[in-house]
């Protein structure tokens, strides 16, 4: 087994704790395991998700950073690019060449110089700008396209629920 992944994750985590990035915070689910992170994302201001507080996990394998982590929201989410079970599906979480998901060729893909930070920044921007090309939640995607008002209402409900859960 490689130490490389663990060293790299330790470095990323301590860097994030020393110099926090606005919009999220990160820590370990269990202090003895660097491969499972718990993150809290603050709903970005001036978006539908404003005021929300969302809990998620990032799971890494010992092939990190050759291969991307997997991200799951634990807080229920309503979004075209988040599966109903919470799994996040955006291009940066897939390596180049993994074309089965229908992303555009130019979309940002996973590279070993990306990091937990770059994933979270992409996820935060995804919240306000869903990618219609590769929906994970087809109902949410359809609603976002065809019934924006209903979509907004539904997201607001989820945001309120996230506040109550806190």
């Amino acid at each position: 087994m490689s130490n490389h992944a663990a060293l790299r994750l330790g470095k990323e985590l301590s860097e994030l704790q020393k110099n926090p990035v606005e919009g999220f915070s990160a820590g370990l689910v269990d202090d003895s395991n660097l491969f499972e992170w718990e993150v809290f994302i603050v709903g970005p201001p001036d978006t539908l998700y404003e005021g929300g507080f969302f809990r998620a996990t990032l799971k890494f394998t010992d092939e990190y950073p050759n291969k991307p982590p997997v991200m799951h929201f634990l807080t229920p989410m309503w979004h075209p690019n988040i599966y109903k079970d919470g799994k996040v599906c955006i291009s940066i979480l897939h390596p180049p060449g993994d074309d089965e998901y229908g992303y555009e060729k130019s979309s940002e893909r996973w590279l070993p110089i990306h990091s937990a930070e770059s994933v979270l920044i992409s996820v935060i921007s995804m919240l306000s700008a869903p990618n219609d090309e590769s929906p994970a939640n087809i109902d949410a995607a359809k609603q976002w396209r065809e019934q924006k008002d209903e979509y907004k209402k539904k997201v607001k409900q989820f945001v309120r629920k996230s506040q109550e859960e806190m």
């Binding site: 050759n66 390596p95 180049p96 060449g97 893909r109 110089i113």
Partner: peptide
């Protein structure tokens, strides 16, 4: 970025 920098490509 697409054809070179990703591992296993």
């Amino acid at each position: 970025k697409t054809e070179l920098e990703g591992m296993y490509k």
